[in-house]
Design a protein around this nucleic acid. Sequence first.
DNA 1: ATGAAAGCGCTAACAG
DNA 2: CTGTTAGCGCTTTCAT
Lengths: 334, 334
Amino acid sequence: MAATGKRPTLRQIADETGLSVAAVSYALRGERVAPETIERVRAVADAIGYTADPVARALRGGRTGTVGVLVGSLADFWQQTLAHAIQRELRAQGIQTLLADADGDPAQELDLAARLVAQRVDGLIVAPVGPAGGAWAEISERVPLVTIGGRLQGAVTVGEVVFDQTAGVGEMLRHLHALGHRRIAVLSWAVAISPDRPTEAAVREQAAALGLDCEIVPCAYSLDGSRPLALEVLSRPDRPTAVFALSDAIAYGALHGCRELGLDVPGDVSVCGFDDHPLSRLVAPSLTTASWDTDRVARAAVGFLVAHLADEPGDRRTVVEPRLVVRESTGPVS
Amino acid sequence: MAATGKRPTLRQIADETGLSVAAVSYALRGERVAPETIERVRAVADAIGYTADPVARALRGGRTGTVGVLVGSLADFWQQTLAHAIQRELRAQGIQTLLADADGDPAQELDLAARLVAQRVDGLIVAPVGPAGGAWAEISERVPLVTIGGRLQGAVTVGEVVFDQTAGVGEMLRHLHALGHRRIAVLSWAVAISPDRPTEAAVREQAAALGLDCEIVPCAYSLDGSRPLALEVLSRPDRPTAVFALSDAIAYGALHGCRELGLDVPGDVSVCGFDDHPLSRLVAPSLTTASWDTDRVARAAVGFLVAHLADEPGDRRTVVEPRLVVRESTGPVS
DNA sequence: ATGAAAGCGCTAACAG
DNA sequence: CTGTTAGCGCTTTCAT
C-alpha cells in the first residue's frame, strides 16, 4: 500500500559521518566546510540517495524551485498548448511546475492562486480568464507575478506579456469587412460580458470605426460550450454572415454547428478564430485565424520571472503582435 | 514585489482568543472543545482570513488534500484532454491537483513522480509513457498509485484503468484488412520500440493473425514529431497503403504529411488514429479512430484513488473497451 | 571549520 | 474541556 520506507534525512547523514546536521547542510551546498568534508558528505548522501525535502525547505522559507502556472481554462485547446510550452520552458530552467486550471471561473482562479502561494511557489505565471476581485493585489504582494494577456485588478506584476488585441481584432475585422461582411457575431470566452476586457473593448471600437454590426456573445470554451451557442446564433432569422470566435477552440465548435445546420463555410457563413492552434490548418475548412507565436509568449513569460528571481534589471513587458492567417473558412458574402 | 504581508497563523488566533494553539487547532477541526469556543474561534479565523498552511501540514504528516497527476506527454492532444478531465474530477472531490508532464521521457517520468511524492501528495495518478526502471516499486510503496493504460515495473497499484488494446488494435486492423489493406505502417508513440509494450504486442499478434505486413515505427507525439516521419514513410517506393497512428495527434501529423505530398486520403492512403480526440471529426478528412470514453477513464481513476483513501473495499480495476469510429479517412485500396 | 539551538506552522500524545 | 510539550526536516544565527 503506502508509506513504508522513509526518505533519508540530514540527520541520517550526520550520524553516518559523525558530523552535525548543520555541517551536513552546509557541506551539501558547498559552503563553509572543509573541501575534504564536503567530499565525504556528498559520498554518503549519494549512497543513501538523499534529496532535500522540499516541504521542509518550504516551511523554513526560501526558494522552493517551483513556480505555479495558472491557466484560465484547460478546456481551451490553445491554453493547453500554452501550458505545455510554459511547462517545458520552466523545466529547461530547472524549475518545477505546478499547473492549475481555473476551468473558466474567475473566482476559482483566485482561489487556486492563493493555494499555489500557500504551497510556496517562487513565482506565479497567470493567463487569466478575467479580472474579478481585488484580492490579486494581495497575492502579488506575496509572490512575483507574471501575467499573460490580461490585467489583474490591483496587482503589481514583475512581468507582462500582452497581446496587441487592437491590432488582432482590427486586422480580422478589416479582413471580414473587405469580404463584405457587415453583421458579425463575436463569440467571446467570458463568463459574462465585461466591457472593460481589452479584447471586447477592441471589438467595439474597431467595429464602430468600420461601421460593422457586431454582437458580442459570451461563450464557454470548448466544443461543447460553443456548438450549441453557435447553433442558436446561426438559426436566427437575421443570421450574421460571419462568426468571429475569440479562440480557435470556440471556432471549432462553430464549424461543427455550421456542419450540423447544413451551412456551407465559407459559402453561407464565414468563421474565424483567434489563436492559430496547430490543428487549425487541418480542420475542414481550414480556419482563418490570428497567430500569436505561443512559444515566444511562453519564453517571454518564463524569462521575465527567471530574470526577476535573479535580481536582474531590465524591461519586463512585451507586446506580442498578431499575424493574420487567412485560410479557407472566410470568404466573400454571397 | 513580493513577500510583504504574512499569512495568518494559529498563533495569531490563539493570542486573539486567549486560547492555546492546540485548542485552536482542535476547535477549527471541530474536535474536543466546547461548542461555544468553536464558534468564537471560527469567527476570529474568518475575520482574519485564516487557512491552514498546507506546507506545515505536509511536514507534520497526514493528508495534504493534493494528488499528483503525471501524464506521459502533454504534447499529445488526447492526454491534454485526459489531464483536464482528471483535474476536473479531482476538483469535484475537493482535491487539489498537481499536474506534471513527463514530455515523453520515461526517466523524467520517474523523476517527476519522486518529486510529487516529496511534495507529499496523497496519491498519484499516472498515465505512463513507458515502463522504465524498477524505482516505481519504491514509489508505489510510499504513496497509493493508480495507473491508466500502462503497467509500471514492479509497482503495486491501488487501482488500474486498462485499455483493451487487443480489441482496439484488432478492430482497427480488421477494418483495414476488410478494405483491402495489406501493407500498413504503424506509428507508435514510443521513445524506442519495446516489444513488451501491450499495444505493440497486440499489433504484432493481430497483424500476424490477419496476415498483414505491419511495420511499427517509433514516433514522437505531436504534429511536429509525426509529420516529418510520415513524410519519410510515405515517400518510400513501397509506400504502405495505410497509416495506423497509435494516437490521434500522431494521425494529424500524418494527415498533414499526406497533404504536403499531394496524397489523397483515403484515395491514395488511408489514415487512422486511436483515441478519438474531439477534433477528429472536424479535421479533413475526418479521422477514423478508436474511442475510449475519456470521461469514464478519468472518473474511474479518480474514483479508485478516492475509494482507497477512504478505506473502502472493492475492486479497483476496470477495463475500458474501444468503440471503432469509422469516418472519412479510411477507404478501400484502389 | 564545526556544533548547538532556535524556529518555520502545524498536529498529537499526554497532562491536568 | 483545555494547556504543555515534542517534533516533522531544514536553514541560519551564534558560539566555540
